[in-house]
């Protein structure tokens, strides 16, 4: 726990020093608060519960302990390849000052696969699991150059998981609530108002690498203040 605290403090400190160099959206040295909206996709969304479940799944050979075994519940179907949509997300951050931003993230991804009959290979069912996640996000921008920035971010919240399963006309729907979040050690943006971004060393609901586009929107009220300040000067 101490290490995490020290690490976060370190990031804040670095961010505080580096963020003073340049203003992201404009070219002036003064900072104007802005709204940052981005959409992106993440590769290999991570579901902790699923990973743990797979890790602990160890089965002994049933013949070892049961030599009379007759499997009365042998499967007459099999699962096809399982796919994911990858994580599709949108994020809003209010960049309050050069280094600190606060907002929220919404992420959606799903897994799906078909069931096939063992004899005919005909499709006999379908399984899909939809994950809807929402969590507050904090972003620390620790390098601000003209058209280029580097940041770290962290967010944790909730996910709603809806599962739909159909096998030989038998439907099963279920839902559960789980934890969701994303931790990014290194993310970068290229561009001024409209920019591209990528979270390179990241882990969480959005996956292990993300790419996307964003837009920095300076409110007219803030711009007016800025212009007024320029005029006075």
């Amino acid at each position: 726990m101490k290490r995490v605290t020290v690490f976060i403090l370190f990031l804040v400190f670095i961010g505080f020093i580096q963020a003073q160099r340049r203003t992201a959206p404009g070219s002036r040295n003064t900072f104007t608060a802005y709204n940052d909206i981005r959409i992106g996709i993440g590769y290999k969304p991570f579901e902790a519960a699923y990973a743990i479940e797979n890790f602990s799944l160890f089965e002994m050979d049933p013949w070892f302990e049961n030599p009379n075994l007759i499997d009365f519940n042998a499967k007459d179907y099999y699962k096809g390849a399982r796919y994911t949509t990858n994580a599709l997300f949108c994020e809003y951050i209010y960049q309050a000052n050069k280094w600190f931003g606060l907002g929220g993230t919404f992420t959606y991804f799903s897994y799906f696969n078909s069931y096939y009959d063992t004899m005919t290979d005909a499709t006999v069912g379908f399984n899909s699991v939809h994950h809807f996640s929402i969590y507050p996000t904090v972003r620390f921008t620790w390098l601000n150059l003209r058209g280029f920035s580097m940041y770290s971010s962290f967010g944790i919240g909730q996910r709603l998981v809806l599962q739909s399963d159909e096998l030989r006309y038998v439907h099963n729907n279920s839902g559960r609530i789980g934890i969701a979040g994303q931790f990014t050690l290194l993310g970068l943006t290229i561009g001024k108002n409209t920019y591209c971004f990528s979270d390179l060393s990241t882990l969480g609901t959005q996956g292990i690498i993300t790419v996307g586009v964003g837009y920095r929107l300076v409110s007219t009220k803030n711009l007016r203040h800025e212009k007024q300040a320029d005029y006075t000067r």
């Binding site: 590769y43 290999k44 099999y78 699962k79 096809g80 390849a81 399982r82 796919y83 994911t84 949509t85 990858n86 897994y111 799906f112 696969n113």
Partner: peptide, 8 residues
Amino acid sequence: SCEIREPE
């Protein structure tokens, strides 16, 4: 979509 698990 991207395949995350091969068919059984």
